[in-house]
Design a protein around this nucleic acid. Structure first.
Length: 633
RNA sequence: GCCGGUGUGGCUCAGAGGUAGAGCAGCGCACUCGUAAUGCGCAGGUCAACAGUUCGAAUCUGUUCACCGGCUCCA
């Protein structure tokens, strides 16, 4: 006699046997239903077919729960693998996990698979699902599993590394996979899936290994959710900053300079506005600004450690037969500025900001619009402080980040603490001290964070800020890096209260990160409809006919005198056409002027999302603009 | 860098061995117009580059470059 209960539903049952399968238990508990795809036994996710011989807590896992969805996706990956095996016999399979928004499977396919083949594979999957192919689990001793997968190098490698005497194998028809599970009981539970793309992926994510074919797909509990997701992908495509950058005439990229973006007047209007904002905030917060050269003696980079740890990413040149390097970072330049005078503890913290344009050699395949480029502007600052000031200074920077990301741009963001990488300088003691200083700042501000082991800079650990964009993708923007190395290497000092020479600690930090990337993120975040304060054209004046051109010109001059970026559409087009074009350019305000406005010296105001606001006096319009959110007003 | 795909006027795309086409944008003319596309006309391309096959290549082959989807790497 076995006793089972479900606490959440306050149900219990008894089964008069010394063992039971979980699906029977779920039925006895009255928890069964169409959406049940797996079970939980004493908190452990399990197959419905799992046989238990003790009583316990049992609950049903449905397709629409987060755990259920993961199982659906994982099982769909298996379903896809079975279909691929049918169409490409002799294929071997790497790993095929569920991921955020879907799943993938890495396949060493017996023939080339391209995107054109996906419908064929999908059709095969539907065939298998329609036939209700059973999925069964079998536990095997490791040695048996090794025999079973003897002709599969990938599974063999995985099994060898599993630290347990037995492994589980899931079989469905001719396909079998090494897998922890759990899975759906049969393929008929899998309907709402779609294969999305094909890509190459290194076996185990290591570029020294063979490249496998990765097929990405997604699956959901309901057709509606799948449809919504596909729609979201389409929406994301419309927001792509590369497309909007072209449509809105913000920037361009050319074969003549891969990874080196060209900014057009409208793109520069946005960038300069961002920079205006940035300068104001930094002046308020006690920063001063410097500018250091693009090209510096190679010796400097050898001394800084970049030659040893960053050479692969640097560009080099020669001047008068002497070797030079194009700067990939701004820190050595900042240090040279610091060292031009003897500094006192009274000067600290010394906050030297720099909008530094850096060049980094990125591998050709990684370039991506403005998000990943070979030349970008860092909104950098190097802060020189005493050891005792670390926590305070880090907290000040975190507050600036919060203000910028959250209050001004409305981004959600997450924080990571990145620790010592393999290729790095300094002693363990220095690193431990630096890492705990950063941790201390995070903890005393109650900032939730995760640890990203081994991802620090070569000279110190860092706190990274990841912004979440409209697609839920995250982008690293801000970073705060603590550096105990460079000041020592360069003999950076200050005279302490005790009259003796000390070495300051250095903080490297950026807020936007790369202004180019930040713009890319903003373009997608706002779908090109920039808020009034950032919009490249804030007001478009639309005269209805030539008779109103003079008044339009007069208004244009007036608006510019207010500091408003304004343009006039003098084309001989009809009103509807001019409005349409301004709407497509996502201009925040359109000013329509005809006889009525000209005679009464008023303006007809149209707002891009609210539509026609009617006629109003020029003063009223000025007041309206004054109410717009504007952090640099 | 690696795997796969793509490259045709400013933009979006059609054409697949016989010498290049549409829509939009541009320019000209007419219309002088009230809140998301006025009409007519004109002009615009060594079909990414280089080499090869062929009587003939935008089309087939090779190489290179760039871009796109990923992997690795990263702000």
């Amino acid at each position: 006699m076995l006793k089972f209960k479900n606490t959440d539903e306050n149900k219990s049952c008894e089964i008069n046997s010394d063992s039971a399968e979980l699906h029977e238990v779920i039925k006895s508990l009255g928890l069964d239903g169409k959406k049940v795809i797996a079970a939980k036994f004493n908190g452990e996710l399990s197959d419905l077919s799992r046989k238990v011989n003790t009583g316990g807590e049992v609950s049903a896992v449905t397709a629409d729960s987060p755990e259920g969805l993961e199982i659906i996706r994982h099982s769909t990956a298996h379903l896809m693998a079975q279909a691929v095996l049918r169409l490409y016999p002799g294929s071997h399979f790497g790993v095929g996990p569920a991921i955020k928004d879907g799943f993938y499977y890495d396949i060493d396919a017996s023939g080339a698979i391209t995107e054109d083949d996906l419908p064929k594979i999908e059709a095969e999957m539907r065939k298998i699902s329609g036939a209700g192919e059973k999925v069964t689990r079998e536990d095997m001793a490791k040695s048996d599993a090794l025999k079973f997968f003897a002709d599969d190098p990938y599974k063999t490698e995985l099994i060898t590394e599993i630290d347990a005497p037995t492994v589980s194998v899931y079989k469905q028809g001719e396909y079998a996979d090494l897998c922890r599970g759990p899975h759906v009981p049969d393929a008929s539970k899998l309907h709402n899936f779609k294969l999305l793309s094909v890509a190459g992926a290194y076996w185990r994510g290591d570029e020294h290994n063979k490249m496998l074919t990765r097929i990405y797909g997604t699956a959901f509990a309901s057709p509606d959710e799948l449809k919504t997701y596909i729609k979201r992908l389409e929406e994301a495509k419309l927001r792509d900053h590369r497309k909007l950058g072209k449509d809105l005439d913000l920037f361009s990229l050319h074969e003549e300079g891969p990874g080196f973006p060209f900014f057009h007047p409208k793109g520069m209007a946005i960038m300069n506005t961002l920079i205006d904002f940035w300068r104001r905030e930094h002046v308020k917060r006690g920063y001063t600004e410097i500018k250091t050269p693009q090209i510096l003696d190679r010796e400097l980079w050898i001394r800084s450690g970049h030659w040893d740890h960053y050479r692969e990413n640097m560009y080099f040149t020669e001047i008068d037969e002497k070797p030079y390097a194009i700067k990939p970072m701004n820190c050595p330049g900042s240090i040279l500025v610091y060292k031009t005078q003897l500094r006192s503890y009274r000067d600290l913290p010394m906050r030297l900001a720099e909008l530094g344009c850096v060049h980094r050699h990125e591998r050709s395949g990684v370039l991506h619009g403005l998000m990943r480029v070979r030349c970008f502007t860092q909104d950098d600052a190097h802060t020189y402080i005493e050891q005792s000031q670390i926590k305070d200074e880090v907290m000040r920077i975190m507050e600036l980040d919060r203000y910028v990301y959250n209050d001004v741009f409305g981004f959600n963001y997450t924080v990571e603490l990145s620790t010592r990488p393999n290729d790095s300088m300094g002693t363990d003691e220095q690193w431990n001290e630096a890492e705990s200083a950063l941790r201390d700042a995070l903890e005393s501000t109650n900032t939730p964070y995760t640890i990203n082991p081994g991802d620090g800079a070569f000279y110190g650990p860092k706190i990274d800020f990841h912004l979440e964009d409209c697609l839920g993708r995250t982008w690293q923007c801000g970073t705060i890096q603590l550096d105990f190395q460079m000041p020592g290497r360069f003999g950076v000092t200050y005279i302490g209260e005790d009259g003796a020479e000390h070495t300051p600690v250095m903080l490297h930090r950026v807020v936007f990160g790369s202004i180019e990337r930040f713009m890319g993120i903003l373009i997608e975040h706002y779908a090109g409809a920039f808020p009034y304060w950032l919009a490249p054209v804030q007001v478009k004046i639309i005269p209805i006919s030539d008779n109103h051109a003079d008044y339009a010109a007069e208004l244009h001059k007036l608006f510019m005198s207010w500091g408003v970026r304004s343009e006039v559409d003098y084309r001989g087009e009809k009103l509807g056409r001019k409005i349409r074009d301004s709407q497509l350019q996502k201009v925040p305000y359109m000013i329509v002027i005809g006889d009525k406005e000209k005679d009464s010296r008023s303006v007809g105001v149209r707002e891009r999302s609210k539509g026609d606001l009617g006629s109003m006096s020029i003063d009223a319009f000025k007041e309206l603009l004054g109410k717009e959110f504007n952090p640099i007003k």
